[in-house]
């Protein structure tokens, strides 16, 4: 029975995704069970099935081995019962999927966030207007006081930011579990490491409410820091963030000039 092999491969693939990944994940992050989100799992499985079918049918033998039994069930007059059962199974499967899709649920709707939305070209803080295209960290050029500025930025961080973003900048401060979206992890290569300082300045300065709507400003708990901190303090804390994590800010052509 050649048809069993692809079915077996697909089943193994499904188990790996459904159990294997969460299992490995739970070793990395003890106490959690990091499942593959359904939205991703569906796409994974689609391509696992498609890929398996492709590499099982490239040869004539393989093709006959898979199509043959299926065609047999649907055409052989002697297999009426099997045909009936298999049609029922396929039909019920379709009904089940459709039911899952439409049934009412009490889950909060999935809200999609764009984590790094496009910044506005200018932003207004402290009654001043800043052009984010060309804005640079004024303190970065001050090499003489760099260590001092970083240290003062650290003080700002631990007095204000630490509670959510954590002492190791992993986004796991004392309060992190209360938030969704969770506080940003600055050590991660996907956050400040790929952003310019002007972007970070904008994100800190205007906080959650300053996000454009695709980034769900109503969800973020980040305060509007320009109401609470001075411009200089924000630039210092930015210096501190990059210095502590060892990342260097992205520099665009407009800023390099």
């Amino acid at each position: 029975m050649k048809i069993l092999k692809p079915i077996l491969i697909i089943a193994v693939g499904y188990l790996l995704l459904k159990v294997g990944i969460p299992f490995v994940g739970s070793k990395l992050h003890p106490g959690t069970w990091p499942v593959v989100p359904t939205s991703v799992l569906k796409m994974y499985m689609f391509f696992v099935v498609a890929g398996t079918l492709l590499f099982s049918t490239f040869s004539e033998d393989g093709y006959a081995g898979i199509v043959g039994p299926v065609a047999d069930i649907y055409t052989n007059p002697k297999k009426g019962l099997l045909r009936f059962v298999s049609i029922m199974i396929v039909g019920s499967l379709g009904a089940y999927v459709a039911y899952q899709y439409v049934k009412p649920t009490f889950d909060a709707p999935v809200e999609l966030r764009s984590i790094h939305p496009a910044p506005p070209s200018t932003v207004k803080m402290w009654g001043k207007s800043y052009s984010l295209q060309t804005l640079k960290n004024p303190l970065r050029a001050d090499k003489a006081n760099f260590a001092k500025n970083v240290e003062e930025g650290g003080i700002v961080f631990f007095q204000n930011c630490f509670f959510c973003h954590g002492d190791r900048m992993l986004g796991k401060g004392p309060f992190y579990q209360g938030f969704n979206p969770m506080p940003a992890n600055f050590v991660d290569v996907g956050t400040i490491a790929q952003l310019t300082e002007s972007f970070v300045f904008w994100r800190i300065g205007t906080g959650g409410p300053g996000l454009p709507s695709e980034a769900t400003p109503w969800l973020s708990a980040m305060p509007i820091w320009h109401h609470l901190l001075s411009e200089e303090q924000i630039w210092k804390v930015i210096l501190f963030l990059y210095d502590y994590t060892g990342h260097s800010p992205r520099v665009t052509a407009a800023q390099a000039h």
């Binding site: 939205s39 999935v110 999609l112 764009s114 454009p212 709507s213 695709e214």
Partner: peptide, 9 residues
């Protein structure tokens, strides 16, 4: 149906 819908501003 497979991708989340983002409505641009």
């Amino acid at each position: 149906f497979g991708l989340p819908l983002i409505i641009p501003e």
